[in-house]
């Protein structure tokens, strides 16, 4: 038990997705509840363990006692009342904060000022739509710091769960239903997590990236998403732009500012700005992108993006095009 608290103090730096290192009010509140219940429970555990150790040492059968019987006590009403009432009182404390906390995390009335993001889970990636800003993106969630962000969660296929531990606990994405949660980041940074409801072969590779930005940075990102880079006029990138159609990529993927408007796979607008690719399991480098394009299910088991058997020149051109999308 002491180990646990020692761990809590030292284990954060090496654990970027630690619940014990909250970066926003939701995770902070949840952590305070964990500590409250932990210390109450630790106290009860020490009582139980202490009594057990004393009983084992003091009331062992000793040599010569084999034939004599201990007093045949059958019960003690006063004692039994005590160890019924005391736990009830301790649990009452936990009960009160639990109810209060449940309502704090709920959306009691639509908050007009909060930024709303619609989150849709897919096997095995995340779609994000900002209805008030007219932006759609995937796998790379941008939020402004110091602001409550309302997430409206649903799923296109099976259940998923949105879990970025440093920003708050998880909520499930259920097909045919819209769930709600809110998150808020205290300070800028990249916060990661992953899908926490088993969703199939690629479950382990369905990772989350949230970029919390200062209001100015966030506005800059919004502007870049609203005014994406223009279609390349020449060079390898131009070839990639054309291959995007001939190879069939456009059937699933959309890129704002182009005729490509597929909705099956992730929206690729400004892909080059994203830190990660392939459901956030690979760093966004030209080499990783090329490897991914060559054989997606080989890189990420269960990936629904098929191996299109692209030629090396197609891969080169597509990488050049996609990495030009700033």
């Amino acid at each position: 038990m002491a180990l646990l608290s020692a761990f809590a103090l030292t284990g954060c730096a090496a654990a970027p997705e630690s619940v014990l290192n909250p970066a926003g009010p939701v995770a902070q509140m949840q952590l305070s509840y964990m500590y409250l219940s932990f210390w109450i429970m630790a106290a009860i555990f020490l009582v139980v363990a202490g009594v057990l150790v004393v009983a084992v040492i003091r009331f062992r059968e000793r040599r010569g006692q084999e034939r004599e019987l201990p007093p045949q006590v059958e019960g003690n009403t006063a004692l039994e009342v005590v160890w019924t009432i005391v736990p009830i009182l301790l649990l009452a404390i936990l009960g009160v904060v639990t109810v209060a906390g449940s309502f704090t995390l709920a959306r009691l009335a639509p908050s007009s000022r909060a930024l709303v993001v619609q989150v849709t889970g897919h096997q095995y990636w995340w779609a994000y739509t900002y209805p008030s800003l007219g932006i759609t993106t995937a796998n790379d969630l941008h939020i402004p710091v110091g602001e409550k962000v309302d997430l409206e969660l649903t799923s296109k296929d099976v259940m998923h769960a949105f879990w970025v531990p440093r920003l708050g606990g998880k909520t499930d994405l259920v097909p045919g239903r819209t769930n709600y949660m809110w998150i808020e980041a205290d300070r800028p940074g990249v916060y990661t997590g992953q899908c926490a409801e088993f969703c199939g072969t690629g479950h382990a590779d369905m990772r989350l990236v949230v970029e919390a930005q200062t209001p100015a940075q966030f506005q800059a990102w919004v502007q870049s998403m609203k005014h994406p880079s223009s279609v390349p006029a020449s060079g390898l990138a131009r070839q990639g732009y054309l291959d995007f159609k001939t190879a069939g990529c456009f059937a699933c993927h959309a890129i704002a500012g182009t005729p490509y408007q597929g909705v099956v796979g992730p929206n690729l607008t400004n892909l080059a700005q994203r830190p990660m690719i392939a459901g956030n399991i690979l760093r966004n480098t030209p080499a990783n992108l090329a490897a991914w394009l060559r054989n997606p299910p080989g890189v990420k088991p269960g990936a629904l993006m098929p191996n299109l058997h692209l030629s090396p020149s197609q891969v080169r051109a597509l990488v050049a095009y996609l990495e030009s999308l700033h």
């Binding site: 964990m34 429970m41 649990l91 906390g101 879990w163 531990p165 606990g169 998880k170 909520t171």
Partner: peptide
């Protein structure tokens, strides 16, 4: 003990799964 910790619904959102 850990069961009681899990019963605290807001905290369970972190513990769950």
């Amino acid at each position: 003990m850990s069961g009681v910790m899990l019963a605290m619904a807001p905290a369970d959102l972190q513990f769950n799964n």
